[in-house]
Amino acid sequence: MSKIVVCRCEDVTLADLEHSVARGYHDIEEVKRYTGFGTGPCQGKECVAVVACALARLTGAAPATVPPFTSRPPLAPTPLRWFVRDPAAHRFADDRGDDADDGAAPATDEEA
């Protein structure tokens, strides 16, 4: 029997969605958590519409009533070091003042 993959990052199949719905987990947020779909590198950009359509079909819900799950920042996978010198970061009492050798992204105007 062939597999229909609905989320390529996490290898979630249509059968996984059917299993989730059979358990009573219909809400797209519950399905995300129960199957893991949308939790990989694409964060749902490739799979959320496919899954929403499948859920509408599996549950009999009108497609307009199946919203995407809450999208989370960042927009794309982002290296930690890009944030290191961001002026938004809280500075604790023991924070070093010297950012020179931390390998961070280029200094902002504020810190340059």
Binding site: L80, F83, D86, A88, A89
Partner: peptide
């Protein structure tokens, strides 16, 4: 952004 920047700063340190 304040959170993720603070976390990144402390974790990378």
């Amino acid at each position: 952004l304040e959170f993720v920047a603070t976390y990144a700063r402390r974790l990378v340190r």
